[in-house]
């Protein structure tokens, strides 16, 4: 954490001093006044300088972006990140020439990075935030293939009248399948097992 103690003839003076040194704006820092100072007689006798302690506030969204960049770099992947914020959701869209490595088998690497980033952002954020990572439109493609899978298995379950368990998936992927089959008249869906190995069961109605 970047912080600095600065002095000046007045409190404002000391703060400006610190801002200049840290090269940040006033809204980016927390200020604690250590001594308000005293002007003294004619500005000479009994004068005491003002002292402030200035701490640069950490921007959770930026900090998480840095975290992702560093972790990927250590994995040997150079990435570019676009950020967008909607309410408590923070979306990071990653661009790299090794998206396959970033995504991993069925998105497991991307999901792991998403879990870790969410921890980092909530370490610095005062309100709870949810991180969503995407690259190469993977989430949309995955959603489409999950819906296709759901319908295919649902038909089979309806035909054979035998329940079928899918492989473990994170909650946001299970939700896609529950939603896709919510209106189905021959099958029903529920989840079994405990996180992180919770999986969906499609069973005949």
């Amino acid at each position: 954490m970047k912080e600095l103690t600065a002095t000046g003839t007045t409190v404002d003076d000391a703060i400006n001093q610190a801002l200049q040194e840290l090269e940040v704006r006033k809204e980016d820092v927390d200020v604690r006044i250590i001594d308000e100072g005293k002007r003294g007689f004619l500005g000479i006798f009994g004068a005491r300088p003002a002292i402030v302690r200035v701490t640069v506030k950490i921007d959770p969204v930026e900090e998480t972006k840095k975290y992702l960049t560093k972790v990927c770099k250590e994995m040997g992947i150079d990435i570019k990140i676009d950020t967008s914020i909607e309410g408590r959701y923070v979306y990071y869209t990653l661009t790299s020439n090794q998206a396959g490595l970033l995504i991993g088998k069925r998105g497991q690497t991307l999901n792991a990075l998403q879990t870790l980033s969410q921890l980092v952002i909530n370490k610095y954020s005062d309100k709870h935030r949810i991180v969503r990572l995407d690259t190469e439109n993977y989430r949309k493609k995955r959603e489409e293939s999950l819906i296709r899978l759901a319908n295919r298995i649902a038909n089979r379950v309806a035909r054979e009248q035998k329940k079928y368990s899918l492989e473990p998936m994170p909650s946001f992927e299970r939700k896609i399948i529950h939603n896709a089959l919510a209106g189905h008249n021959k099958v029903t869906t529920y989840s079994e097992g405990s996180e992180p190995n919770r999986y969906i069961v499609i069973s005949p109605k």
């Binding site: 972790v71 994995m75 490595l101 991993g104 497991q108 690497t109 792991a112 990075l113 870790l116 992180p196």
Partner: peptide, 20 residues
């Protein structure tokens, strides 16, 4: 909770290990 973070750390580490 239920090893969720440990699993995420391992996933990233093992992904890198497979390539190196």
């Amino acid at each position: 909770k239920q090893g969720r973070v440990a699993k995420a750390i391992r996933t990233v580490v093992y992904a890198h290990a497979r390539t190196t």
